[in-house]
């Protein structure tokens, strides 16, 4: 008997009885031919997602000019302009995620009940998700331009003209417009999962609307809120087209994706682009890990109060 048994073949000690055929023993553990059904999906994701990650990691240590394998990383962290893109990304992504959840949560909460026009409101809120940030940015260049509808409205109300686009604000607005629907869709699911009869029970026990919200709904919704916040943050962290189209890509909105784009598309320096993408992925995974850990420390049982 060796320790290097075939994967999936349980190492066995000398059996007192004639051994079951291998097929039976594997079937007992859920391994049989039907498992092949999953193979295409696993192969595709392996080849197009996992492998590219490893490939990107390996070429990031092979700079175009050769030499120091860490050159791409030292270049990135050594250049204050490039290094600052991390800070600029955070400065954009964190407020966007906070605002998105803060704006989407009350709306999603009220969407639990049916009311006339519910479908219409849902449809309009979902439009940005379907169109994507490129189209939103296209429309913003007109609506938020110095002589666009927004500024015309503001000046008619006596507010001085504002510069909304081609700066931090522009990217912030564009990202938020896509991020709110994203949070909204997730939170609708979370709030919808809270059993209505739990609220009813609280009401019959004398809990006012405010008490029901703070004592029952919120504790049950917090894990969902954290999840929504995390995914919004992760998504906004990778903001790309709107940083170029309505932002100030060389300065205020020089976010992490821009050096990736410049290295890959403009200089065809894929190793350098891959190195920055690796940095970004690591940061994303850290954000995910920390927030999910936080979520798991809170209550995350069922949101229904019994059977039914």
């Amino acid at each position: 008997m060796t320790l290097t048994a075939e994967p999936g073949t349980p190492a066995t000690t000398a059996p007192p009885r004639p051994p079951q055929p291998l097929r039976h023993r594997l079937a007992e553990r859920g391994v049989d031919w039907t498992l092949l059904l999953i193979l295409p999906a696993v192969l595709i994701i392996g080849a197009l997602f996992v492998y590219p990650f490893l490939y990107g990691l390996s070429i990031s240590f092979q700079p175009l000019e050769g030499g120091d394998p860490l050159a791409n990383y030292t270049d990135f962290f050594g250049d204050p302009y490039l290094r600052d893109s991390i800070w600029k990304t955070l400065r954009l992504a964190v407020p966007v995620a906070v605002l998105s959840v803060a704006a989407a949560a009350p709306l999603a909460f009220r969407m639990r009940r049916d009311f006339p026009g519910r479908r219409i409101v849902t449809l309009v809120v979902l439009l940005p998700l379907t169109f994507g940030s490129v189209l939103i940015a296209q429309g913003m260049t007109q609506v938020f331009s110095p002589t666009g509808w927004t500024n015309l409205l503001l000046t008619s109300l006596g507010v001085p003209q504002q510069q909304f686009i081609y700066n931090y604000t522009g990217t912030f607005i564009a990202t938020t417009l896509v991020s709110i629907p994203f949070a909204f869709v997730m939170l609708m699911g979370f709030f919808g999962g809270i059993d209505r009869s739990i609220e009813d029970a609280a009401a019959t026990l004398g809990a006012s609307r405010a008490a029901r919200f703070w004592r029952i709904i919120m504790p049950l919704a917090v894990p969902g809120l954290i999840t929504a916040f995390t995914l919004c943050l992760v998504e906004a962290f990778a903001v790309f087209p709107s940083a170029i189209l309505v932002g100030q890509p060389d300065n205020a909105t020089h976010v992490l994706t821009l050096p990736i784009y410049q290295a890959a598309s403009q200089r065809s320096d894929y190793p350098a682009a891959a190195a920055i993408a690796v940095v970004m992925t690591v940061l994303e995974l850290v954000i995910l890990g920390v927030l999910m850990l936080l979520r798991n420390r809170l209550y995350r049982g069922p949101a229904t109060g019994g059977k039914g």
Partner: peptide, 11 residues
């Protein structure tokens, strides 16, 4: 988000 793997995949 796709930007974390888009470039590696393209490469």
């Amino acid at each position: 988000p796709p930007m974390t793997y888009a470039v590696q995949l393209a490469a």
